[in-house]
Design a binder for these strands. Structure first.
Lengths: 196, 196
DNA sequence: ACCTGAACACCGTTCAAGT
DNA sequence: ACCTGAACACCGTTCAAGT
């Protein structure tokens, strides 16, 4: 039943050893990036995965490719959250809740806010598309809130992306300020509401 | 006339060659840090200064020491600006003008916002005292503005320092957003004003 | 197809040897 | 006192050689 002579070109299943190496690399990367941040040594990742350095580069040609694989699910989930919040919460609440969750995800690893922000100037980055989807998801919630007049009309989805990353960056850079995070978040968000 | 037998311990003048090396190091660092940011290679700095690598470490034991020497004058000037603004401008204007100038200085080199922000968790850094003076200068302007009721009372000098650095960081990280800088600045500052 | 690891060109930091 | 540069322990990235 398989082996159709002219079957439509299915994507070949990867060789078993290749798949296993990929899994080991991702597991090793998850550990090291959690411990040391987005700048963790790629040599260490390969070492911990029990794999040659070239194998890491074969599976993930750039550091961003590796991070994308690590972050994909998390941010897909976040994009979906935008739609559920839009459906269940008032526009302003949906926007602020979602932005708050975004700042948490953007701070998942040390150095991640900087990595995400750098994506804006680098369309080749494997994280570029991921960040674009985030801007679009945030943009939809933003438009709804602006429609209701609860957010200034001169705020763009890009502004939101930059500000939310900047807020994540503050606690990433100075853990001392972790306790001020929610307060700073509210201050900045307040600046986005129209002046009466 | 010199050579007083029991003259009070004057700080010995540095040897002429040492002084010359120091000057060359600072000139080289100024060029390379301007071109490549705060993470410029120290090897390159020594090379361009025409000096051995050990000589660089003798004069500037850490990268922060070098940056401090590079930034000292600039930020001293900025601290003085706080007092002149306080004396000549209304409190709110003085605060926003000064903060705006701070964001410009904090963005003088690539990577500088991150370097400055990191000093909060590192009291040993040569830049720690410099950043403290900035927080104090900003804090005085903040207190005056709060006294007049034009800025929320729950904003601290640390909040200001973090937010201003974060704004500098946005354009540092994504030059694309340079055109949005002043707009983002105003949005954030607006969030610091009391709600009516 | 896929994997390995040596090779290359860099780092930051230290320190024995020089003047 | 001060300077030098080799030495050490790391990087990221590439690529010839293997299975």
């Amino acid at each position: 039943m398989p082996r159709e002579p002219h079957a439509p070109a299915e994507p070949r299943a990867p060789r078993a050893d290749a798949q296993r190496n990929r899994d080991h690399l991702l597991a090793a990367a998850a550990t090291l990036v959690t411990e040391q941040g987005t700048q963790a040594s790629l040599r260490d990742v390969a070492r911990r995965a029990g794999v040659g350095l070239g194998t890491l580069y074969r599976h993930f040609p750039t550091r961003e490719d590796l991070l994308e694989a690590l972050l994909g699910r998390r941010f897909e989930h976040l994009a979906a959250r935008a739609d559920t919040l839009a459906a269940t919460e008032p526009a302003e609440r949906a926007l602020t809740d979602w932005l708050h969750e975004f700042t948490l995800d953007a701070g998942a690893y040390h150095g991640l806010p900087a990595t995400l922000m750098a994506t804006l100037s680098d369309p080749e980055s494997a994280l570029h598309a991921l960040c674009l989807r985030m801007r679009q998801a945030g943009g939809r919630l933003l438009a709804a809130a602006q429609q209701e007049g609860v957010i200034r009309p001169d705020v763009t989805a890009l502004d939101l992306f930059a500000l939310a990353n900047a807020l994540s960056w503050i606690t990433d850079q100075a853990p001392t300020l972790a306790e001020r995070r929610d307060h700073l978040f509210r201050l900045v968000l307040d600046g986005l509401r129209p002046r009466p």
